[in-house]
Design a protein around this nucleic acid. Sequence first.
RNA 1: GUGGGUGUAGCUCAGUUGGUUAGAGCGCCAGAUUGUGAUUCUGGAUGUCGCGGGUUCAAAUCCCGUCACCCACCCCA
Length: 417
Amino acid sequence: MASVSHQPVQGMSDIASPDIALWQMIEQRARGIFARYRFSEVRTPVLEKLELFTHSLGDTTDVVTKEMYMLEDRGGRKLALRPEGTAGAVRYVASGGEESSNARIFYMGPMFRCERPQAGRKRQFHQIGVEAVGVPNPLADAEVIALQVHLLSAWGLEGAEIRLNTIGLPEDRAAVVSGLREAIRPRLHELPEEARQRFETNVLRLLDSKDPEVQKVISGVPPVIEFMSAASRAYLDTVIATLRKLEIHVEVDASLVRGLDYYVHTVWEVVHGGLGAQNALAGGGRYRIDVGGKRIDGVGFAMGVERVIAALEATGITAAQFAPPPPVFIVSLGEAALNENLLLMQMLRQRGVACEMELSARKVQAQMRRADRSGAQRVIIRGDSELEKGIFVLKNMIDGTQQEVELPELMCALEKS
RNA sequence: GUGGGUGUAGCUCAGUUGGUUAGAGCGCCAGAUUGUGAUUCUGGAUGUCGCGGGUUCAAAUCCCGUCACCCACCCCA
């Protein structure tokens, strides 16, 4: 049989020890915070009907047109691997009847986008997200942002900054687009060709362009909020005022735009300096999605776990700090002791002690070396003479001392540590 | 999708204008120490030179293709 490549597919990778310790810390602390804010977990399928995403994210967005993994199943049904979590979560909420009108849910899991990989961008990546469903209420937006800040601090992440803006309601859109076009038109000739096309297709996207030529023109344009209705402006003002009351610092950024069509009112992203070109570690906002004949209003965010990890590592936090506690290692001398120690290990494990041993009668030296490498701070040594006397040698690997103990004493020493 | 860089031992990497048997450090295994690790000394094993094809008397080295990784554009978490 021909050998098969051991490489995973492009842009996807195995996540395992020792890195996994950081993932587990992040997920575990997130669950703790979510419980305090009264959000409950939902695990939606990774595979959804294609139209769920084309309808909710927008069928002209880049995520849908260029980045989605699409496939047909054996019955010819058009499906897609989820590129984000909100659509599936909202579909779940829409299926849930009246009590779901105030659903507060969170999710964590893999998402898929078929883009060219680079720093902070994998084809399978992982998000932790929350959705608070309910009619637009600026206090809800502020609460969700507070939750996000709480998460960042629970993880010990320093140096993150929140940028906030509003994109108004769909009713504001026409005024915003024409207002922006009017403001830019006199300097249209200064823009590169590509940007001039975007002027026609999606002016809003010009606002967050990285092109310095474009930025020069954009810097002279009034903030989008100036073109919005009084109500939309008031909504943003209330969000900002509430955050101030909660002592949450945000940077209001008039150039912030989101790439998905479902956003209304408040949008924000969390950026971090330690990340390279993909410097957003989370994105969020209020949305309005029609699914299954229902209109779902909500506010939520998604955090990119890989990016959170990159930011943590940039600030000096490593997986090693969250490595599992050291085990007890059992060294056996001779076949008889090997078999007895198997029983001992089983008993220790049942009493909650993490332990491991060499499962063959290797030389003591080799077993001690392995014990050292396992990180064990205590080693139990038992051979024929110990078996005869009914005792155990308990060695402290840190100071090298050892003592002979009987079973009750041994259990006592190991269980309390 | 576009562009730049990289792929040699488990890991980090060296490898001359193409030249004979492909190297180092770390790690691993063993011995010194027939019942004691992390230190030291001695010895040992590493390998489809990413994969496939081509040029050549001769390819890790040059050419083409391909796969993957890194970085940026684009986009986004």
